[in-house]
Each structure stands twice: as C-alpha cells, then as structure tokens.
Design a protein around this nucleic acid. Structure first.
Lengths: 186, 186
DNA sequence: TGGGACATGTAAACCGTTACATGATTGA
DNA sequence: TCAATCATGTAACGGTTTACATGTCCCA
C-alpha cells in the first residue's frame, strides 16, 4: 500500500523522502500514514525494483537531498494497481471499540471520561478537516495547481469522507456516553 | 492489542484457540480481526509471559484440544490495560480512500464501477449488523447469558458503531458516485 | 549559540498475512 | 466414503513501529 502511495505522489513530480513524508502528513494522513523510517526504506526498495530512480541534488553544498523520480516501469505499476479494482471491503481496526467491548467490569465513570476525551479529540479532528475543506489545494505550490486541478474532486472526496466519519464518530460517542449515564450500577 | 483481546475473552472463561478464533469472528470481527495462526502464536507467547496457562483437555481421546486459562497475572495485566485510558484517536487505514485519492487519471466509469461494488459490500455489511442487533448475545451459550448480561450494553455499543459507520460509508459512496457522474471529461 | 525545521538513514522488535502441513470427528 | 467442521500448529515473508543516530541550515 505505502509503495503505491509513494508511486502516486511521484507521478505528480519528483520529490525527496522528506517531501513525501510532509505531503502525506498534509493529505493522506487521515486515511493512511507512515513514519519517515518506513518511507526511506520503501523508497530504497522501490529503487531496487526499478520503479523509481534517485539522484543526489546538485552536490555543491554538503546538504544531500536524494530526489526520487518515477520510472516508466513505476508508472506502469501504478497504473496496473489503479486499474485492478478492490473487490473486498477494507477492514476496520479501532482500538477504542476493543476497549469499549471489554469495559463491562470497568468503573462506569472511567469509561465515560475516556469517551469524553475521545469526543474532544474527534471534535478537533473534525474542525481540522473543515478548515482544510475551505482551503482547496492546501500544500500544493501555486505553480502546480493548474496541472493538478483535475485531482481536486478526488482529494476533496477523501476529505468529505473524513468529515462524515468524524461526524458519525461524534454521534456514536454522544449516544454511548448518554447510554452509560443512564445505566444503573458502577 | 490482540493479546489484550485474548485476555479479555479468557476473562469470561477458559477457552481453546479455536474457540477464541470463532468468538472473535462473531463479535470483534467488525473492529478487530486476526487469523488463527496469529491467535495460536499469541497464546503461546502469553503463556511464556505467564499471563495464561494451558492444558490438554482430558487425554482419553486422540483429539488434543489445548484449553487456555487466565492466570492472576493475566487478569491483572488486563485490568491495568483497561484502566489506562487511550489519549489519542486511533488512526484509520482505508485502502479505498488511497485509491480514490489517486484516481484523477483513471477512467471515470471504472472508478464509478469500483465505488458501486463497494456500495454493495457495505450494504451487505450493514444488513449483517442489523441482523445481529436483533439477536442479542449471539454466540453466547444460554447458560452463560446471565453471568455476562452486564456486558450486553458494551457489546451493543460496538455494534451500533458498526451500523453508524456503514451508514455513513454508504452515504459517502452515494455522494461520491453522484459527484463523479456529474463530472465532465473521461 | 541555541532551537527548530530540514534531511537521511539503520536496527531491532513487533505485528500481520499467506502458505504449508497435519490429523480427528461427525453426519450425510 | 466423502465433505465439512473441528483442531492445531510452523515458516516465510512483508509491513509497521520505536528507538537510535547523525548532521545542516537558518533565524532569533
């Protein structure tokens, strides 16, 4: 998955590992994230497979930025991946739900407090998405905007997913907090 | 995470790896899943750490069922884990969103077809949850129901999450399909 | 001159998936 | 006797996280 994300971003233009990490933190963060260590090793592995090539940016200064460029083989691999439709749902892994599931023996107020904290976090996340929605092409340099304009609707769609998800999450948290408050016993 | 799920189920009563896999497939499946291979190795590792003990069920027949039982140490570990509140949101990893994000160069109809297939899958999943909701304590043997009754509201809460999630997912898919249909160009 | 952003990596540990592998029990 | 279900495991591989490790550039 990460490899295809990297190929996807490199299809927009050549970039360093650091830039890929930054752009992911600004855009795919809410549906796929990766640590910088993972990105650097994935890029090396993509290079071993001939899907990208790298070169050190003009070596007149000591700061060595390794710029990665998509190869034809890499572009073909990306296209093949995109053209192969997903035929399953992607599975959810939500730690909070595991905790709620096993919370039958916990102190009721502790559970409520935990859900209220999560409520805050998800509220913040919702506000973050809503702010991003107002600034289309956040993180895209102005000179690239025109060339990438036709990606806009797709980027916006993923953002709308995030907004719908957080709203639904907040609704569930509110319902569950209310249910717990009405529950008798500890 | 998986280890705490196993400890959680073993806190209800002693079980084999096979039973733990079955019970997970019926209950935590929609927010955490694991393969049997992972469960068997995790149980061995929990035993190495002294959190569970196992014994082969009365050896008069050749069928060897290894029954795991929570130790005091395991129970304490579970309690410690539950008493340590989560202080971050759990991150999402949704492959479909990655695909949508990079779908700007794809054939529009292919994307719509992919989303429609996902629509079917999520519709099925919603119906599955709605069926489960009507049968409280599905998968719990009748003689255990009373003892586990106070877990009911928590189990139901996770199911309600699943229902809200799938409804929200379906709404997003419909919106996104509609957006794509109105989009000009290939 | 110190801190923060920029920039890149390695190593170990851990988690998760897929494939391989075996064998018993039960009911049709 | 055949298939489904019960039952348990190992091995290889790949993905992910955490910690360790280093050094530059630029601004205050």
């Amino acid at each position: 998955m990460l490899k295809h994300i990297l190929l996807g971003f490199l299809s927009y233009g050549s970039m360093t590992g650091y830039e890929l990490k930054s752009i992911m933190d600004e855009s795919t963060m809410h549906f796929w994230h990766a640590h910088h260590s993972q990105i650097y090793t994935a890029l090396r592995s993509l290079e071993d497979d001939g899907l990208v090539i790298s070169e050190i940016e003009d070596g007149d200064d000591t700061l060595k930025r390794r710029v990665y460029t998509l190869t034809e083989s890499g572009r073909a691999d990306l296209r093949r991946w995109l053209d192969t439709c997903m035929v399953e749902r992607s599975a959810i892994k939500e730690e909070l739900l595991v905790r709620v599931f096993f919370s039958g023996e916990r102190n009721k107020q502790d559970v409520i407090d935990e859900l209220r904290l999560q409520r805050q976090l998800h509220q913040q996340q919702l506000e973050h998405y809503q702010a991003l929605e107002k600034v289309p092409f956040h993180g895209v340099p102005p000179e690239e905007m025109e060339r990438l304009a036709h990606h806009g609707p797709f980027w916006t769609a993923t953002l709308r997913f995030g907004i719908a998800y957080e709203r639904s999450y907040l609704g569930w948290l509110d319902d569950t907090i209310q249910m717990l408050e009405q529950l008798t016993g500890p």
